[in-house]
Structure formats: structure tokens, C-alpha cells
């Protein structure tokens, strides 16, 4: 697995729209925003209104924390100091299994994989894993591959 993230160099500052989301990860719940009017779900929670019906009457949906890798990058040159010891690490966009809507919309989220580059591929299933940080208020969601897929695609150049 990649090296550790030095959370002493990364201060997460929740705000009025996101504090409940971070409270969610602390309670080991992966939340996405959900519209009370039309049911649409989205991420990240910085957006306080529904992009499908413009309602501001929004709630939370507790996702299973399971999904599939939609795309990924392998960060080789670190930019954020907290991640210097973690390179090379994989950041992925993940399609959540239980956030598919009738019109084809799928809620996609992003996060840091716990897996090595050689273990990650587009199409593979994965699940959220929670990681304690230096800040007792902040628990960081990471993602881990948890299965195989016939159509998995890996960047091999």
C-alpha cells in the first residue's frame, strides 16, 4: 500500500454546508446530498441545492460506501505536503452502487485509494475504509479495491 498521509500537514476546515458530512465520516457513514423534492443525489456536499429541480430542501442519503472505479490518476510528484510520503498514490473517481437514478445519472465521488497502482483498474469494485487523522474531529474516507471485474482496464504504459 502507499505510504502514510501526514495529516499534521493537512487541516480540514468544515463549513456550514459540509460539517454534517464530516460528522458522517466520523460516525463511519458515507453521506451524499439528496433532494427531498425529487430524490436526486450528488457529491460533493459544498452544493446546497438540487441541480435537477433547484430545490434548497435537501437532506442526506447514507450510501453503502461501495462502488466501482470510473477513472483514476497516479500522483507521482507530490504537491500537497501531507502527501509527500504517500507517493505514488492513486486518486480515483468512484461510481456509487446505490446512487443510480432512473434517467441514468450516477453519483460519482472522489477519494484516495489504499491500494497500490498495480491493484487499481477502471471497472473494479471498491469500498470505503475510514482512517483516523491527527484531528479527532476528522475521519478521512479512503477507498479499497474489494473484488474483480471481467472488464477491468488498467493503464499500463
Amino acid at each position: 500500500m502507499p505510504g502514510p498521509i501526514d495529516y499534521s500537514k493537512l487541516r480540514i476546515l468544515p463549513d456550514f454546508d459540509t460539517a454534517e458530512w464530516w460528522a458522517g465520516t466520523k460516525a463511519r457513514k458515507y453521506l451524499v446530498r439528496q433532494c427531498k423534492a425529487c430524490g436526486h443525489k450528488w457529491f460533493p456536499p459544498i452544493f446546497p441545492a438540487c441541480a435537477k429541480c433547484a430545490s434548497l430542501d435537501v437532506a442526506w442519503f447514507e450510501a453503502s460506501g461501495k462502488g466501482k472505479v470510473y477513472s483514476y490518476v497516479v500522483v507521482v510528484q507530490p504537491i500537497v505536503g501531507a502527501f509527500i510520503g504517500a507517493v505514488p498514490y492513486v486518486v480515483a473517481i468512484i461510481e456509487l452502487d446505490d446512487c443510480k437514478e432512473a434517467d441514468g445519472t450516477v453519483t460519482r465521488v472522489a477519494g484516495v485509494m489504499l491500494d497500490e497502482e498495480s491493484e487499481v483498474a477502471i471497472g473494479l469494485p471498491c469500498e470505503v475504509v475510514y482512517e483516523e487523522t491527527n484531528d479527532p474531529k476528522i475521519v478521512m474516507p479512503r477507498w479499497k479495491i474489494n473484488g474483480t471485474a471481467a472488464n477491468a482496464w488498467r493503464f499500463t504504459e
Binding site: S8, R11, P44, I46, V75, V80, F83, A86, V91
Partner: peptide, 27 residues
Amino acid sequence: PVPVANAEGDAQFNMGWGWTTPAQRFG
């Protein structure tokens, strides 16, 4: 690299994952 970073606003959900630069995003 940024020695100590504050992840606020949008950055909670990108800098928090070590995913900030245009290269990382467009990648």
C-alpha cells in the same frame, strides 16, 4: 510542495485527497 495546507471550501473535497493541480485533475 505546500508545507501545511488548509483545506477549506471546495478544497475539502480535493486537497483532502491530495488532488489539487490541473495535471492531477485533467489526468
